[in-house]
Simulated assay, not measured.
Amino acid sequence: MTGLRYVYAVCRPFGAALQSQLRGVAGDPPRLLNHHGLIAVVSHVPETDFSEEALRARLEDLDWLAATARAHQQVIDALTVVTTPLPLRMATVFRDDSGVRVMIEEREDDFRRTLDRLEGRVEWGVKVYVEADPESAAQPAQPARRAASGRDYLRQRRMQTRAHEDRWARAEELAARLHETLSSRADDTRLHAPQNPALSGAAGRNVLNAAYLVRRDVSEEFVEMVDRAKDDVPGIRVELTGPWAAYSFAGEETAREEDTGTREKGVGPPEEDAGEGT
C-alpha cells in the first residue's frame, strides 16, 4: 500500500509481537521502522485524507476525527501491553520512511531521555466532580416551594447558595487531599484544566482533572487509594481511568515542525474518555 506515513509512537526495540489482527488508522496494519536503535511504529495512510489541505478539512468532520482517534488509540493500547511507548500526537504524518528517519535523528536525544523516564510506567487519570444537589435530583418533579414574601424568597436563595458553596468547598478539600496522597505514589503529575461539561458530557462540575505517572509495580496500590476516596464525601464523584500510555508526560510540547521535505502535523492525543490520554 502506498501513501503517507502515519507515526503512532516511538519506543525501544521489543521482542513481543503485536496482535496479528491489529489495524491502525485507515485500516492499515502498523509496522515497525527501526532506525538508530529506536522503533517508530508506522502505517500507511492515503494522501487524499492526510495531505495538509485534506487534513485541515477532515478535522471539521467529527465522525472521521472520532474514528481516527479510536484507531490511533487502539495501536497505542496494543503497544502499551508489550512495551513502554512514547506516543506522538494524533495525525503525525510524513511523506515517506525517509521523513520518519529524519525525525528520529533530529529528536533522538529527546526520545531517549523521555523513554528512560517513562520506562516501566503508565499514566492514570483521576477526576473529581461535584454532582447536582442529591435532594433536587431525587425529587425532580416537585415544584419549588412558593415564597410567602420577597424576604422568604431571598432566604431560600441564600440557603441554596450556601449549600452549593459548602459542597464546592468540600469537593475542593477532597480534591486537594486526594491529589497530595496520589502524588506521593506517583513519579510525576500533571494538573489539567477542568473539563467543560458541555464538551465532555460528564455529569457535574469538574474540580480535579489530573494525570499521574505511576510505576507498574505500584499501580495496584495506586488504584486502591483512589477506590478508598470514592465514598468519602456524599455528592462528590471520583473517577479513575487508565492505565494509559503516558501521553501527559511524553514531552510533545517540545516537538518542532521542520520543512525538510517531510511534514509533521499534530492535532493532539486522543481524549482518554473517547479512546482519552488529553
Rank of each mutant, 00 (worst) to 15 (best):
P194T: 04
P194W: 08
N196W: 02
N196H: 09
N196A: 12
N196Q: 06
P197C: 04
P197V: 05
A198K: 12
A198L: 14
L199I: 10
L199R: 15
S200W: 11
S200F: 12
S200T: 11
G201L: 11
G201F: 12
G201H: 13
G201N: 14
A202I: 01
A202R: 11
A203V: 12
A203F: 04
A203N: 12
R205V: 11
R205A: 13
N206K: 02
N206M: 08
V207G: 02
V207D: 00
V207P: 01
L208D: 02
L208S: 06
L208Y: 02
L208G: 07
N209A: 08
A210Y: 05
A210T: 05
A210D: 09
Y212T: 12
Y212V: 04
Y212G: 07
L213D: 14
L213H: 10
L213I: 10
V214E: 08
R215D: 13
R215Q: 13
R215F: 01
D217P: 10
D217G: 11
V218K: 12
V218M: 07
S219I: 06
S219N: 08
S219D: 13
S219T: 11
E220D: 15
E220R: 15
E220V: 15
E221M: 11
F222W: 06
F222S: 04
F222C: 04
F222M: 05
V223H: 10
V223C: 07
M225R: 15
M225D: 14
M225A: 15
V226A: 03
V226T: 04
V226C: 01
D227E: 15
D227C: 02
D227Y: 03
D227L: 10
D227M: 07
R228A: 14
R228S: 13
A229T: 00
A229R: 01
K230E: 13
K230P: 00
K230L: 01
D231N: 13
D231W: 00
D231Q: 13
D231V: 06
D232H: 10
D232C: 08
D232W: 03
D232N: 05
V233A: 01
V233F: 05
V233W: 02
P234W: 09
P234T: 08
P234N: 07
G235H: 02
G235E: 07
I236P: 01
I236D: 03
R237G: 00
V238F: 02
V238G: 01
V238I: 04
V238E: 00
V238C: 00
E239T: 11
L240R: 01
L240A: 03
L240G: 06
L240V: 08
T241Q: 04
T241Y: 05
T241P: 00
G242Q: 09
G242P: 11
P243F: 05
P243G: 08
P243S: 07
W244G: 09
W244A: 09
A245Y: 06
A246M: 09
A246R: 05
A246I: 04
Y247A: 15
Y247D: 12
S248K: 06
S248I: 03
S248C: 11
S248D: 14
F249C: 10
F249T: 11
